[in-house]
Structures are given as structure tokens and as C-alpha cells.
Amino acid sequence: MQQDFLIIGGGVVGMAVAYGLLRAGCRVTVLDGSDDSLRASRGNAGLTWVQGKGAGMPAYAELSFEASLAWPDFAAELEERTGLDLEYEHRGGVDLCFNQEEAEARQREYSAIQSTSPYLARQFRWQYLDRTSLASYLPGLGEGVHGGTWSPHDGHCNPLYLLRALFSANLGLGLDYRPGCEVHLLTPLMNGFRAATTHGTYEAERLILAAGLGSAALAPMLGLSGAVRPVRGQVLVTERLQKIAQLPTPQIRQTASGAYLIGDIQEEVGFDRGVTLPIMQQLADRAVRIFPFLAHARLVRSWGALRVMTPDGHPLYEASRQYPGAYGLSSHSGISLAAFHAGRLAESILQDSLNHEYAKFSGARFSRSALNP
């Protein structure tokens, strides 16, 4: 019996959409790469975030906000299905500013997003707080921090546990999971699509390309744009320390185990996933500026990972007009948008209404921007 969907890519984006389709009763095969594939899902900080999303594209900010509203039920459902604790917390978050200029620019940006979206003007809550006012949210905050924007809509989770829970839930719903199947050719057929891999060929009526950075090479085969590039991030991890009731920030957050994740770096270095001493020093210095008590904490691990970044930094959702039934999905906010990907986005794909409902996220915007710089 032919599968309803082939999904290329077993990261958080692909597995979240698979979860939504499987819940709807679809037959789904996921073709995943090898263990050494470029995997953004294993290298991120685990934020479920609204702040800062959508500058220049209010629709993205609205999606992020709606995803944050859906996350509590999404997490509870996954935990009930699998018995796995996602370490999800939704108590708000703070995005730090280190000087007056940065603080003023941040406030202008958030006000501009709200001014172009009546929905967010009504719903999105945020406030700029000086360092003293942040003390109750971030005990131990250093004098070198100017302040930050606080919002009740932000949160965080363990991204590895999220991915594990999606795998477990999907397998329980009948997912046909094929690891180690690097796809090198996608072919439209009369009644579906064929994927040629390192371990044979697979066919289905419809196909979803959620291959992260691999989409750049595969998307043109289906008449999709696949406009993505790698942007490196580096992360430092401290030893486990006593838990403190602190809100997460993009710059640093304490995990459920007590370790601190230190990051928020973006580097244009191609496909280099390495870590570098200057960046590690920069991250360590900033961490101590934020929380001086970390000066004596031991660092136990570091890693580099590659974000899946579109030209404007916003998600890419599109259905092929040349080959109906093929879809391309790319986003560097796979954790934040996971509830949306498993919910409304999966429903839109199932109903084949992606281009109608999410036209603003199509790759066509990149060709338009090229014509109108």
C-alpha cells in the first residue's frame, strides 16, 4: 500500500509535522540522514520564544505568538503519550540589553512590530525593565547589564527530550522511520513522488521536504526554492550548579539539571561546525558579566551547530506549483514553532492549502526582493 507522505528529514521540523499527520490517520515514512548529518535539532538552546520574532514580517511574529499559546497543550499531550518529561517551562523570559543604545533599539523594534499588527498590539505583552527591576526575574544579575525586555509568553524546554518524545510518539502512531537514508534524487511521478536514497527507493502520494540545510540541493528538483544557508552558533555548558529561580534568556539559561547553557552567537562561516577559542572566551566573558557568580564555575562541554537560515531569517513554507503535492519547510525556529508545525501547519498541508494560508512565507518573496532591492 502506497504511503500518504514521504518526509525528508527527521529533525524537529520534520518529526513535528509527521506527528500532526499521523494523528490525522495518515501513513507516513520519514527518511532520515546518518548520525553525522548536519542536525540543528541537536545543537540549539531549547527556547520556546516570541520576543524578537518577526521584525520586517509581522506574520512571523503572529505565528510565534500563537505557537507559544499552543505549546503547553502540545507538551502535555506528548508527555502523556510517551511518559517523557520535556522539562518545559512557560514562566516568561528576558532578552538582555547591555547598553542604552541597544535598549532603545529593542524597544523601537517591538513597538514597530505591534504597530503593523493589530493582533499583536492587543495580545503581545512586553516591558522594558532596568537592571534593578530584573532582579526578581534573574537573581544574581550583574551590574554590567543595562536591563532587558521581559515577556510572559516565552519559555524553554529540553530540545533533545522534545525530539525523543516526537520519535516515541510517532513510532507509537505507526511511523515508518528509515534512518541512514541519505536522499540524492527526488522524482515526481504520475501519481506521487519517488526518493532515491543510499538504501533504496521510496514512494508516496505526497512529499514534504524538511531536510534543513540539505533542502538547498533537493528543493529545485521539486520546483521549490530551498533558499537556506548555514549560520553557526557556539554553546558553552557549565557544570551542574544549584538551581536558581531564573527566567531563561537567549544569552544564557539554566537547565533543569542545573547546568547553564551559554550561547547566542551567529557566524557566517559556511559549513564549519567547529568551536573556536575567541568565541568561547567571548561567551564566557559575557556569561560572567550577566551572572558574576559564574566566574568560578567549571566549563564541561562546548559545541558548534549550524542554524538553517533563510535570506531574511523568517520561515519558508511553500507548496510546489510545478509539482502539486510537494512541500518545502525550512525554519531556524523549529523548537519555538513545534506546536504550530504539529498543529495548524500539518492541517494546512493535509488540506493542500499551504500556499493560500501561508502565502507570505513562500520562497517567492526572495525573487521579489531580488527584483526590488
Rank of each mutant, 00 (worst) to 15 (best):
T310V: 07
V235Y: 00
A112P: 05
E203F: 04
R253E: 03
S330A: 14
R178E: 06
G46P: 01
A196H: 13
L261D: 00
A338L: 04
G192Q: 03
L277A: 13
I279W: 06
R164F: 11
G214F: 02
G52L: 04
R229Y: 10
T29V: 11
L213Y: 02
C97F: 09
D285V: 08
R42H: 15
V269M: 10
G20D: 06
W49P: 01
E239Y: 03
G325P: 05
T48F: 04
Q107K: 12
S353D: 11
G43E: 00
C97P: 01
H296Q: 15
A370I: 14
S41I: 06
Y19I: 08
E102K: 06
Y317R: 02
L22S: 07
M309T: 11
F271L: 15
A196D: 14
A75L: 06
G92W: 05
D36V: 12
P152Q: 05
L173V: 06
Y177P: 02
A18G: 12
F5V: 04
G155K: 00
V288P: 02
P324E: 10
S68D: 02
A339D: 02
P152E: 07
N158G: 08
T310D: 05
F366H: 06
Y323D: 00
N191T: 14
T238G: 01
W303H: 02
L185D: 13
Q322L: 15
I8P: 00
H356D: 14
L218W: 03
I208C: 01
P159A: 10
P179D: 02
G92I: 05
R81I: 08
Q100A: 10
R106M: 12
S151T: 13
A121N: 11
V231H: 03
S115Y: 04
P278W: 09
P311G: 09
L173G: 04
L185H: 14
C157A: 12
A342V: 10
G11C: 09
A219N: 09
I244A: 14
R321D: 14
V183F: 07
V28D: 01
T149K: 04
E182I: 15
V228D: 02
Q100D: 10
P118M: 02
V269F: 07
F340I: 01
L209C: 03
F65V: 06
T249F: 05
T197R: 09
V288C: 11
R321K: 15
L345A: 07
F74K: 03
L141E: 05
L316W: 08
M221C: 10
F340A: 03
Q123K: 15
E87F: 13
Y327H: 07
A40N: 09
P373V: 14
M221A: 13
S353A: 14
R365T: 06
I335Y: 00
E89W: 14
E89Q: 15
I8A: 04
